[in-house]
Amino acid sequence: MAEDQARRVRIWDPALRAFHWLLALLVVANWLLGKFGPNIMTLHFWLGYSIVALLAFRLIWGIIGPESARFSSLFHHPRSVTGYLRDMVKREPSHWPGHNPLGALAVIAMLLVLIWQVGTGLIADPEDFVNVGPLANKVGSDIATKADAWHALGADLILIFVLMHIAAILFYRIWKNEDLIRPMLTGWKWVRRR
């Protein structure tokens, strides 16, 4: 019985939490700037560089950070993903310590799409002579103009991922009665040993 009891544990370290909220803020702001911002996209560029820095931090933190930030805790066996999926519809908190098998897949996907987005942004040439990516001249004009289209595709993917992310949080909050926002603010989460 004691083993089944949920305990409050410090899961998310301060750096990871800061990373998460800064990334959320910058990605949303930069998405809006990209779609609706000024024609001279200087601010979009600078926020993009900041996102590069955040992603670089995350990649390092995935190697040297605490347990729940490690990449090793992101990769689960496919069987645990299907197992998690099966139990997910239960109307009870998951009490999962750290990234659950399905959420970990979402994290990997979001990191990959953001890497894609900063990569294509850096080499994109929209042929307007003012918003040319700083590395566009390193890849040749053919790839640079294509990268502009890839960057637009990436923006659509980011929108989809952000909406899915919010939907998942709401699903946990409403259906499973588990608040995942507070742990990302305080670091403390109710977890059960696995």
Partner: peptide, 9 residues
Amino acid sequence: VQKLGGTCK
């Protein structure tokens, strides 16, 4: 350039 490029975009 900025003024012109803005209209391109």
